[in-house]
Design a protein around this nucleic acid. Structure first.
Length: 182
DNA sequence: CTCGGGATGCGT
DNA sequence: CGCATCCCGAGG
């Protein structure tokens, strides 16, 4: 159970997004391991992507997303839920991949289909913003198992992003019952 | 300081 | 379809 290397994240965001499917998200807690298989993601490409938070430029909120790859970007949405992203590409680029759904593997209670539910099940909140995913308590690993065919669709909830709303930057594993909105 | 709106989820 | 609930970013 080795964390994926920094070089995995330091690549084209769409490629990283697709390759994150089938990987295992792991958090080590005092109560044991929480493990989920990533089955749905969205790519946010950088400041030119009007759906990305970094389209606002470098702010306090986007500081982590503009930082080095392989770190978590966690933010609160609607005052209720949290969303977990992984930062991609070299520092300064401002891209990330949103994790949208997990297939439960171990230690997960509650639903895991949807970015807010995923965070709740994994116990992730904004205190985890900026965490290095090459750590031993919270990381992503390659289980070495096969992934079914990948489906590409427009991202969810980004209608404000004009033509970027139509780009097929949401990816999920075909036929997987844990995908939030097949 | 105020104000508008949001990469959601749930109940009606 | 309404709404909870709060943080962020923009503007005064």
């Amino acid at each position: 159970m080795q964390p994926l290397p920094r070089s995995f994240y330091n690549r084209d965001t769409t490629l990283v997004a697709r390759e994150l499917l089938g990987k295992h998200l792991i958090r080590v807690t005092p109560e044991g391991h929480r493990i989920g298989r990533i089955v749905e993601v969205e790519a946010y490409l950088g400041p030119h992507d009007l759906a990305a938070h970094t389209a606002k430029g470098l702010t306090e909120r986007t500081r982590i997303m503009f930082g080095p790859p392989g770190h978590s970007y966690v933010y609160m949405i609607y005052g209720i839920h949290h969303c977990l992203n992984v930062v991609t590409e070299p520092a300064g680029h401002g891209a990330a991949v949103l994790l949208r759904a997990l297939e439960p593997v171990a230690g997960l209670t509650g639903r895991t289909s949807g970015p807010g539910l995923l965070c709740r099940a994994m116990g992730i909140d904004r205190l985890w913003n900026g965490h290095d995913l090459l750590s031993s308590d919270f990381f992503i690993t390659d289980p070495g198992t096969a992934v079914a065919r990948i489906v590409a669709r427009p991202r969810i909830g980004v209608d404000y992003a004009r033509h970027w709303a139509r780009r097929k930057l949401r990816f999920y594993e075909r036929g997987n019952q844990f995908v939030s909105r097949p």
